[in-house]
């Protein structure tokens, strides 16, 4: 039985430690999936899907700074699972169909800047960005991931990537992101 203490969960997620999510799967899958099945009478597959989405939401909350302290991780994760199930019921949207497109819509849905934008165009941009990401190289992809997704500081990025200083990391990040945006625009024109 894996024991996960609450503060180390937050710390590991903040550090972008993916193995923490794997440990959470092993430690809390039984509790959350059984609990959901009992409480909502949903099927195994749906419960498992909700559980994994709940873990991803937990990670997002930690990375965005909305959650920096956990007292009871197990109950908290189950709470997210159950809320996700309720939301799915409300919008009659089966959560087991969630994929990159759904996540993309979720990330953009509350953004005021996107109110009047064309949904089809945004979805097209998702595919284009994926293609562009494949062209910028592993190093650039890592820098972008560390900065925009994992929200690491330039000091941390410099250390991980072996740059001489945070200024070098900053310049590399700017260059890589510019390269990605330009490549995306280029693919869009094709």
């Amino acid at each position: 039985m894996i024991h996960l203490d609450n503060d180390s969960i937050v710390l590991r997620l903040k550090q972008g430690d993916q193995s923490c999510l794997e440990d959470l799967v092993v430690a809390y899958k039984g509790y959350c999936v059984n609990g959901l099945k009992k409480k909502t009478r949903c099927q195994n597959e749906e419960a498992e899907d909700l559980f994994i989405d709940a873990l991803l939401e937990l990670r997002d909350k930690v990375l965005s700074g909305k959650l920096d302290h956990l007292i009871n991780a197990k109950s908290y994760i189950f709470g997210i699972c159950y809320n996700k199930w309720l939301s799915a019921q409300r919008v009659k949207n089966k959560m087991n169909s969630i994929d990159a497109e759904n996540y993309y819509q979720q990330y953009l849905k509350d953004d005021m800047l996107f109110e009047s934008d064309d949904v089809d165009y945004k979805m097209q941009l998702l595919n284009i960005t994926n293609k562009a990401l494949e062209t910028i190289g592993e190093k650039c992809y890592k820098i972008i991931k560390y900065f925009y997704l994992e929200k690491k500081s330039m000091e941390d990025i410099a250390e991980i990537m072996g740059f001489a200083s945070s200024d070098v990391a900053k310049t590399s990040k700017s260059r890589c992101f510019k390269k990605l945006v330009e490549k995306t625009k280029e693919l869009e024109k094709q």
């Binding site: 990159a100 497109e101 996540y103 993309y104 990330y107 953009l108 953004d111 800047l113 996107f114 934008d117 945004k122 941009l125 998702l126 284009i128 960005t129 994926n130 990401l133 972008i144 991931k145 925009y148 997704l149 992101f177 990605l180 945006v181 995306t184 625009k185």
Partner: peptide
Amino acid sequence: LYEKRVVAAIKASA
């Protein structure tokens, strides 16, 4: 706007 969509796309794919 453009960069926001790109970052959202990276996050979604990841």
